[in-house]
Design a protein around this nucleic acid. Structure first.
Length: 598
RNA sequence: GCCUCGGUAGCUCAGUUGGAUAGAGCAACUGCCUUCUAAGCAGUAGGUCAUGGGUUCGAAUCCCGUCCGGGGUACCA
């Protein structure tokens, strides 16, 4: 039992005997004791005053006295104002530590057969440009969230919906036909997604020039945008694609293939993957059929120009376009189709969409539409809405070239990691290949931690001018702590100082730092649970940092291998091993690897 | 305009269901490597928690107003 559970139940009993009240939820407030007071857990007694009719101090004292008598693990207590600080005996903490070591599922639940199935959609790229920092945040959050849900016992299917059709890809195709013909990833040496990104920019350059020309001829901005030859040609390509024109479809397949090869490289380096990939080209017609069914059943309505709409005013939303007047589908149409296919393919208990908060409205609408169409799971979909990554110059925009490219960013980080390691001379004894692997782990660790430590809901700032830190509250700090621990464990093994299977003989006293460290270790399962309940990788990241920091303080103050007292030495070795394990498990929930040396 | 999210140290961020003296890191300054990895540890300095009210034993946290910023707002995705 956790210390919270023990004290909670004890306090419940005390309240009954002392004041004859049945504690309702929220009445018993427990918190970790602040470090500057003596104790492990603190009960806030203010809520009991109206029952005790005594001062906060007296109330705390009488509760403390009984708890001390009733709970054998309680060593002592003290009262500060309305706060009852309770201290547990060392034996309790040692036992908890042992449990953390022995329990192979410490903090990480095994999935059972009856577990609920959660589908997590993330990444969802367009195939006309390479991935950028915004996608990185999405991918890392989606992957980490999936790992955290698994650790909480859910079955998880990671899925990706690839936006492989539509006007955007036609723009890149047109640019290739007109200005880039003959270029391939092979003969240019460019990554496929980057090649398409360049073509897309090329299209936009021409398009803008044409608009400028038309504006000079006296057309309005809107007219110019509609009548520029490039956009007309791109639309023509889209129509040909939709009608199955063999040449256009072949080109589309080829160019998308280039992009997928590029994406695969980025995904692999980033360490994310998917169990099932959907393509919009397969789902948009399903969505269209669903909309037409809704129209037939009178759920939706048609305007004079032929466009199809949903009236969502009764849900507090607005009227929403579902099919354009020319019969083509819009963004939300394909989401309807994709949802239908997914629930057909899997028995999903919960659907989570990892999509930026700019689409909050979109997902409210989607939930309402699915509900109207008769899907019982429609209202239960969860939009994991995360904040934007902002640059000092503002929002990232692909077309304006103000994006931080995912591949460039990772490559740059690896370079920094390499330079730093060489400067410190840490990896000189390793082969170049081994060292390279570690640079990669450190660089990606720095990047991932930097992104994931921030509350997902909030916008975050990234300044490309300042490189991401490797010191302080960072991924490498935590990785370093792990490497340091492994180093100690290696040395202790060489000296045959390893700990027994069971720690039978433990010291009477724990130092302040030792106990603080054990307390921190023991929190891990609760943190995993909260991270799952709140969909927040940041909880895990912050915990890992606190744990690593706690260990480093302990490490600085206490010899481990050099300790002469056998029982103390073994306890410290054991603590080190458990911290190493928890760091490794915790970081893996963030998709971050930890090296054994660095 | 309306809807929505946010504003905590110079910068980037934490801050649990409202609890004790609001915390980290970076940047600045000071110490600590003949002893288990100094990508570390310890210290100094840095705050009107945007702002004005309210709720109460107690507010960064809850409520209302104001200011500032992001996002959305019917044929982009």
């Amino acid at each position: 039992m956790t210390i919270e559970q023990i004290v909670f139940s004890a306090v419940t009993d005390v309240l009954k005997t002392l004041y004859d009240i049945d504690a309702e939820k929220g009445l018993i407030q427990l918190q970790n004791t602040r470090k500057d007071f003596k104790g492990d857990i603190t009960l806030v007694v203010f809520p009991f005053l109206k029952y005790s009719k005594k001062s906060p101090e007296d109330t705390a004292f009488e509760i403390g006295t009984i708890i001390r008598k009733n709970v054998k693990e309680v060593e002592s207590f003290n009262v500060v104002k309305g706060f009852l600080n309770i201290e547990f005996e060392n034996g309790y903490w040692i036992k908890e530590l042992e449990n953390a070591r022995q329990n192979t599922h410490f903090g990480i639940s095994a999935t059972n057969k009856n577990a609920e199935l959660v589908m997590v959609e993330y990444s969802s790229p367009n195939t006309n440009k390479p991935l950028h920092l915004g996608h990185i945040r999405n991918n890392l959050l989606g992957f980490s969230l999936s790992e955290i849900l698994k650790a909480n016992g859910y079955k998880v299917v990671k899925t990706n919906i690839v936006n492989d059709r539509g006007i955007h890809i036609c723009k890149s195709m047109l640019a290739w036909l007109k200005w880039g013909k003959g270029q391939t990833p092979e003969n240019t040496g460019k990554k496929g997604d980057h090649l398409l990104g360049e073509l897309y920019v090329e299209f936009d350059r021409h398009y803008k020039q044409e608009i400028a020309g038309l504006l000079e001829k006296g057309l309005s901005q809107k007219e110019a945008e509609e009548q520029a030859p490039s956009i007309l040609e791109a639309r023509d390509l889209l129509r040909k694609w939709e009608s199955g024109d063999i040449e256009v479809v072949e080109l589309w397949k080829t160019m998308n293939g280039w992009v997928y090869n590029g994406f695969d490289i980025t995904y692999r380096r980033l360490g994310v993957d998917f169990d099932k990939i959907y393509y919009e080209s397969d789902t948009y017609l399903v969505g269209k059929d669903e909309v037409l069914r809704g129209l037939q059943e009178g759920i939706f309505y048609e305007k004079d120009d032929g466009s199809v709409w949903a009236d969502l005013t009764s849900e507090g939303l607005d009227h929403k376009l579902l099919l354009r007047s020319d019969g083509t589908s819009v963004y939300i149409t394909q989401d309807i189709g994709t949802a239908k296919l997914r629930f057909h393919d899997y028995s999903i208990n919960k659907m989570i969409y990892v999509v930026g908060n700019e689409q909050n409205y979109h997902f409210q609408v989607l939930a309402a539409l699915l509900d109207k169409l008769g899907y019982k799971w429609g209202k239960g979909l969860y939009h994991f809405s995360y904040g934007m990554v902002e640059l000092p110059t503002g929002k990232m925009k692909s077309r304006e070239g103000t994006v931080v490219d995912a591949d460039d960013l990772m490559e740059g980080m690896v370079k920094v990691a390499r330079d730093m390691a060489k400067e410190l001379g840490k990896l000189d004894s390793l082969t170049e290949e081994e060292a390279k692997k570690i640079y990669e782990i450190i660089a990606l660790g720095a990047l991932k931690y930097y992104i994931l430590k921030v509350d997902p809901k909030k916008n975050m700032m990234f300044n490309p001018e300042e490189s991401i830190d490797f010191n302080g509250n960072t991924g490498p700090f935590i990785q370093y702590t792990h490497a340091r621990i492994q180093s100690v464990l290696r040395k202790s093994a060489e000296k045959k100082l390893a700990v027994d299977k069971n720690l039978t003989n433990y010291p009477e006293k724990l130092s302040f730092k030792e106990k603080e460290l054990i307390k921190r270790i023991v929190q891990f399962p609760e943190v995993v649970k909260e991270a799952g309940g709140n969909y927040s990788p940041a909880f895990i990241a912050n915990y890992c940092y606190e744990l690593a920091k706690e260990f480093n303080q302990f490490y600085h103050d206490h010899p481990i291998i050099g300790e002469n007292d056998k029982s103390v030495r073994e306890l410290r070795l054991l603590m080190s091993a458990v911290v190493g394990k928890v760091i490794k498990d915790g970081m893996s929930l963030l998709g971050i690897e930890v090296p054994d040396r660095m």
